[in-house]
Design a protein around this nucleic acid. Sequence first.
DNA 1: GCCGTTTTCGGCCCGACTGTTTTCAGTCG
Length: 607
Amino acid sequence: MRATNGRLSLLFHRVADRLEISGGATFQVQAYRRLADRVAGMEESLHERWVAGGRLSEVPGIGKAIEAKLDALFRTGTFPLLQRLAQEVPESQLELLHIRGLGPARVRALAEHLGVRDVEQLRTAVETGQLAQVPGFAERTADRVHRSLFEYMSHRGRRLRHLCDGPMDTLLRRLSTCPAAGAVHPVGSYRRGAEDMANLDLVVVTTRPEQIAACLADLDAVEVLDETVSGGTLRDPPDALVPTGSDSGRDRGDAGRQGDAPLPSVRVRFDSGLVAVVRLCPPTIAGGAIAWHTGSRAHNARLRELASAREMSYGPTGLRAGGRPVRSRDESALYAALGLPEIPPELREDRGEIEAALDGRLPQLLRREDVQGDLHMHTRASDGSGSILDMAMAARALGHSYIAITDHTQNVRIANGLTPERAAALIDEVRRVDSQVEGIRILAGLEVDILKDGALDMPEEILSRLDVAIASIHSHFDQPLEEMTARVLKALENPHIHILAHPTGRLIGQRSPLQLDMDRLFQAALQCRVSLEINSNPERLDLDDRHCRIAARMGVPVVISTDAHSTSQLENLSRGVLQARRGGLEPKDVANTLTCGEALAVLRRRG
DNA sequence: GCCGTTTTCGGCCCGACTGTTTTCAGTCG
């Protein structure tokens, strides 16, 4: 295997993680970690530099010690330091670091006192109450670890969507240059717009499957795990082919393994461990195959019932009648054959979309271009990296007609939150910049911290000067349900507050949602006319799709915002839109699809 | 581990706060 920079970066990360758990010097750990990041972003290949006789120690971050280790690695293919560390700290133990509340020291303590070296053992220790025996795990910490373990387990083996975009792009670009490939379709959870996924799934329309397999084998970024592409051409549904048994993780059902005969496939793995399953199908049944591999298990089961009622069957190769494939060149043909309009991929979860389709009341889903403004972002005034003008120009370039500058308030110290004096100055500065730019309106706002007792972290006189006042929680995440609910409701009752940002406080796979009575929250939002945010940060996506659905049903206004801390993060808006689409939201449900004036009228509820 | 150098070793560090300790680990945006 070639020693790409990506692989070297991974190696340095593994060394750093293990050194940390085994109690290595902090600065040594940092040196490896910094180097890992640096190498990942380098244009020049370290290996090629070495081959050409270049000095590695001239690369920033590489000194004499690492140069010698790399020299040995390139000559012998081994990295003895990592081999030694791997014996001390197994891979399974590294995984424990992903659980909030567990750092290297506590992971070490768990191994020393309980012999816990993997997630399953930790779970047992938690469930049997053994955690309390370990120094450093008093009741509250143990409680916390318990909750974050639960959150972690529920997303284990899954990757956040933004980490899958690059690999998906790589595959799409490669396949688009392959002469044997017709249309290339992302399918599976990715196409349904899911926030995280176990693997990538694609369907390639082709009559020459072997050439597709060869094309993927040629791709530097991946390793081919296996393929079930036998010789010849692909004309008829390949019923006789051997199952791949490919999918892994919770999603196992939504692509493959649900029915009869699978399509031939090629499975590849990226350096990050992400697996992609590329399925190959002939044009005649493309619509059925794409639909089958896109729908969730539950959605497909419903389509199968409909097919059965029409004396057809439905499986990986689409519809069959009397044992013969039903032609479906595209998905609309497939749905039409079942008496349905085509259902948008984001809705294919069996959460009411089949009934809606049958009744002719599928929503006209929100589109990215419906959104006219972004009401949550940060600048250098607190913890952002751009100026007011930077953010405004970048937003204008994205087609926004208005934005709100909403920096943090003083209680969020680490984010350089604003005192009332600095907030007042920021408002003046926003007004000044707004008067000088054309083509976009800049609104003055703040992301006001909700304190432990529900009080707001900014005096009324400042709040009353804002166009957009956002309230949100950044501390004391562990309050019990009653306390937390009362805290948030108290903040919503303040008449100056327009929006509740990242309402549940979750970080996907890392931090559980706040213990919050969501029924009462929705009721209060409705009564106070406070909008609830869909935060587009890929680690938050909060509200989630189910909450979006509830909000729309109850008539609680929703706002989709980026919470951008840099100009590039303004592009995350499409992630929030995707979540809204999964929640079935239409433009009318989302306040920032309105013009600036109209949106402000919705926000200024009591005026 | 690396770096810069006052060339042989000290500095490197977001930093205040919390929980659990009695000096420290982990957290927050």
